[in-house]
């Protein structure tokens, strides 16, 4: 078995990955004594209060802008950000930058996913090889991949390729480690069952190991969806010819607070959409997860 330290990074990512998958109605021990709502109340009250919090927050924000408690140069009121979002979306440059950043993210992500899953399968098939190579995998997962940005720009140029490279690098290891981890954690008795049926390696892989590992693989894929976008943005921060990250830096230095915040919201939305797509695919593919 690998050392504890080697396994740790995935534990985190899987913990994060499943953080929002809380079964409704389960009452964890520490919360036994807390005032609970019955399911009906819960269904209506909670979203309404949640929404109420948001509205109150936006109102307070607007009010403090109007009372000049916050400088509009630092944080413009929500209304002007909203108007600016409409302007930004209609601006002639927007589509090009959006396409650039999205392409970098998706291409880097998909490459990382394919290569990492393939390599994960290879490494867990050949255990000896895995033992030899795994220390490097752990090291590379722990060191901050964004430090490779300048090197990647030297290698791949200031264009789209270096950002794809960074998106790839930053999202690769999470998927790799999760894939290996998932294949490692196939229950021993299930494997014994397949052996008792004289199943071939191929059958065991297809009928048992692969589906059993999928929840882990997808936990990795979810985390790395966000990471890929980060990679693309960081790459664009440094040097680039196009992209939302570059535009963000430009607006920041021009002190266009409205536009900066509008872009931030749009980038956030892009992140949510990308994550949402992966989460959706996850739910479709690994439908049996509790």
């Amino acid at each position: 078995m690998a050392g504890v330290s080697a396994v740790d990074p995935t534990v985190e990512s899987s913990i994060e990955g499943q953080a929002n998958a809380r079964a409704p109605g389960t009452v964890p021990g520490s919360n036994d004594d807390k005032p609970g709502l019955d399911p009906l109340q819960r269904r209506w009250v909670e979203p309404i209060v949640s929404l109420g919090v948001l509205i109150t927050f936006l109102l307070a924000w607007t009010l403090s802008s109007q009372l000049r408690l916050i400088s509009p140069l630092v944080l413009p009121p929500p209304a002007s950000i909203a108007t600016e979002i409409m302007d930004v979306v209609r601006a002639p440059w927007f589509l090009g930058d959006l396409v650039a950043t999205t392409t970098e993210t998706i291409v880097g992500y998909l490459l990382a996913a394919v290569v990492a899953i393939f390599l994960g399968v290879v490494l867990s098939t050949f255990r000896r090889l895995r033992r030899i190579v795994y220390p490097y995998v752990v090291v590379f997962q722990v060191i901050p991949s964004v430090a490779l940005a300048p090197v990647l720009i030297i290698w791949l140029g200031p264009g789209i390729s270096s950002k794809i490279g960074l998106a790839f690098t930053i999202s690769f290891f999470v998927v790799l480690v999760n894939t290996i981890e998932g294949l490692e954690r196939v229950p021993a008795n299930s494997l014994r069952l397949m052996t008792s049926l004289a199943a071939s390696r191929r059958q065991t892989f297809l009928m048992l190991s692969l589906p059993a590992a999928l929840p882990y693989v997808f936990a990795g894929l979810r985390t790395s969806a966000t990471l890929a976008l980060i990679g693309a943005l960081v790459g664009e921060f440094i040097t680039s010819t196009a992209g939302l990250g570059r535009r963000l830096v430009e607006f920041s230095f021009a002190m266009k607070a409205d536009s900066v915040w509008a872009l931030l919201v749009l980038i956030g939305a892009l992140g949510m959409v990308l994550y949402g797509i992966v989460a959706l695919i996850d739910r479709r593919v690994v439908w049996w997860r509790a």
Binding site: T226, L229, I230, L233, V234, F237, G245, L248, V249, F251, S252, F253, V260, L263, L264, I267, G268, G271, M272
Partner: peptide, 8 residues
């Protein structure tokens, strides 16, 4: 959300 976007 990609928090690095906050950098600038």
């Amino acid at each position: 959300l990609p928090k690095v976007a906050l950098a600038p």
